[in-house]
Design a protein around this nucleic acid. Sequence first.
DNA 1: GACACCGTGTTGGATTTACAACAAACAGTT
DNA 2: AACTGTTTGTTGTAAATCCAACACGGTGTC
Lengths: 188, 188
Amino acid sequence: MTERLDRRKKYTRMVLKDSLMELLNEKSINSVTVKEICELADVNRSTFYTHYTDQYHLLEQIESELIQDMERYLNSFNFEVEEETMEMTEKLLEYLASKSEECKTLLNEHTDSTFQHKVTAVAHRFIMHEGLAARKIDPKVSEYIGSFIVNGSINMMKLWLYRGMDRSPKEMSGMIHTFINKGLEGLS
Amino acid sequence: MTERLDRRKKYTRMVLKDSLMELLNEKSINSVTVKEICELADVNRSTFYTHYTDQYHLLEQIESELIQDMERYLNSFNFEVEEETMEMTEKLLEYLASKSEECKTLLNEHTDSTFQHKVTAVAHRFIMHEGLAARKIDPKVSEYIGSFIVNGSINMMKLWLYRGMDRSPKEMSGMIHTFINKGLEGLS
DNA sequence: GACACCGTGTTGGATTTACAACAAACAGTT
DNA sequence: AACTGTTTGTTGTAAATCCAACACGGTGTC
């Protein structure tokens, strides 16, 4: 078990993160200043520099922690191979739903695409676990199809978040899974 | 202008106060421990003792600050003599409404009556400013009537708070004022 | 009465943060 | 180019808080 963090550090980091997230709902990281973050967080500027080198570092930390948390969540499940892709897709959707505010902030057009890249990498690792290899498809082709599937899925999930999650994670993963297996034919 | 308080002190006191108020919504001050307050506030126990001697002291500070704030609010108004009682009653009701959560907590049966005594003293000072003296009533009698009016008013206001403030402060002060001047006759 | 558990009040040393200030860089204006 | 205002990154010192520990008292159980 990791050593417990000093509560002052815990608090300071929490309010700095919350403040940056709030500011990113309004503008891009490039126009957010350290001074603004500190004013919103009510934390001294020199204290900021004992924790982070700049606002980009803080953002990177936020993204990394969310990705780690996402991986931890997805790692806690275990499914059979074929069923796994759909279940994992559903679990990823559930996770995104549970952190929908943070995810929307980090996926919006104000931020660069680093978070989306990270989520895509996670999706690739968890959803494309063994799925295509089991289908005996040419590895070169498999790679293209996998890229199509993962990026398509992520952007669908993104749209789902911004639409206020109007369908359940189960419905969404069913839709994705059906399209993956049967293309448009499966949706008529 | 007073010297600005160190933001750490400000924060520590705020969360300790908020935590005690939350606990007082569930039980009386006698069964609230310093340990519980600190756990809820996520503040070290030894830090508590650098600010307050015990939970009773903290409660006293909360009450005193609210009373001071109330006085400051009421002092910012100026009315003519006769009209003043009704206007001040309305202002007091407005203040109680604006701090309804805190007031309900401090006036509930879990706490002793110190806060109610303090509010009653304020009401006596502001609402009974010159009202009865101007009516040329026997001072001894005036004192009894004043006590009746102030305590009756306070308990009415208390009930109003717990009923969710179902009438406007203006309506309430009108009702109180009419009763004071004409008794039940004025309400038929 | 002994025991276990919990909370209190206190202490010393370590850690974290605040504060004020400074020099430098940047951006916008004239 | 000079000027102004803002932000940055850093520094030294002080203040506040954290942490772990201790002795003590109160409460409940056996």
